[in-house]
Amino acid sequence: MAFKIANTLELEHLHLLVQSLDVMTDFYNTLGLQILNRTTNQVEFAIPGNTKPILILSSNEKVSLRPPHTTGLFHFAILVPTREDLAYVIGNLLNLAIPITGAGDHIYSEAFYLNDPEGNGIEIYRDRPRSEWLSDGKGGLITGTEAVDIEGVMALYDNLRPWTGFPKGTALGHIHLNVSIINDATTYFYIDALGLDIMTNFHDSALFLSAGGYHHHIAVNTWQGVGASLPPQQTTGLLSYTLSLSSQEELQQLIANLQAHQVPHTLENGRLCVLDFNQDAMNFYIR
């Protein structure tokens, strides 16, 4: 029987390399994240009231902007608990004059998009109940990009609810990556070795991958061009992303499967590290 990663898998946080730590810190603080810790070269953010980071920013004097048509972060997605919470966040971001660059109804979710000052994509979304998701009849899900009912969402905006940042229950929902190619090696890594499921193959240009039947924890696409190169070192964007499992047994099962598939990995202080196709570190630990 093929290995499946535990359905307890959760995304915990991502780590970005940035050019201007001050500018990016101001942006994410205004966006509604709370500063947990700050040093000269690094800032950790959490959802207000939480003590675990959702985003880490690091910088140094040598960082340059990621060139176009390279692999890396397409966007990271912040999941809010309800449609009312989505209206609350988007309404307040508009009040704060933070530009919204797009929106999409993906059948299982309603999403709004924006970019940070260094061009990293951000999605803010809410999930519909799983009972409303549409099966493709093959164990996956049907998705698309339809127009969001913006009037319906914003009708739920309560301007008397004070802005205190992202609401309780907000989490890192998924991460979406630009890759150079989608082929058998891609599925070997994500499906055979990591034990994820393909929930949607979107026109052979994007794969949506998950554990436990979620629509996606990780997505990969070739929308920066098939054959896109890795960005130079010390350029802005994703350094690593961290996922968690619920037990030592689940972590050991993943390690055993990586060994069986000869996928390089390291284990240090209880953290499993695997390099993905963009040479970004995937970190796994027990929450």
Rank of each mutant, 00 (worst) to 15 (best):
I78Y: 01
F74R: 06
A77M: 01
I100P: 04
I78L: 06
I98T: 10
P99H: 15
F76M: 03
G91T: 07
R83P: 02
A87E: 04
P67S: 06
Y88W: 08
G102V: 09
L79K: 04
G102Y: 10
R83G: 04
T101P: 09
A103E: 08
F76W: 07
H75M: 12
I100M: 09
A87M: 05
A97N: 10
I78E: 00
I90P: 03
V89A: 08
V89S: 07
H69E: 14
T71D: 00
E84Q: 07
A103R: 08
H69L: 15
R83H: 05
F74Q: 07
D85S: 09
Y88G: 05
G72Q: 13
P99G: 13
N95E: 15
H69I: 09
T101W: 06
G91P: 07
T71R: 02
G102A: 10
D85P: 05
I98F: 10
L73E: 04
Y88N: 06
N92T: 11
F76V: 02
G91E: 07
E84G: 02
L93D: 11
T82Q: 03
A103H: 09
L79P: 00
I98W: 10
P81T: 07
T71N: 02
R66N: 14
I78K: 01
E84I: 02
L94W: 10
A97P: 00
P99N: 14
I98R: 10
I78T: 02
A77Q: 01
F74G: 05
L94N: 11
P81N: 05
I90F: 10
T101I: 10
T101K: 11
P68W: 14
T70K: 15
L96V: 05
Y88H: 09
N92M: 11
I78R: 00
P81F: 03
F76L: 03
V89C: 12
F74W: 09
G72K: 12
I98L: 13
G102R: 08
I100R: 07
V80Q: 01
T101F: 07
T82A: 03
P67R: 08
P81K: 06
G72T: 12
T101N: 11
F76C: 02
A103P: 00
I100F: 06
H75K: 10
A103Y: 05
F76G: 01
F76P: 01
P67Q: 07
H75Q: 13
T71K: 01
A87C: 05
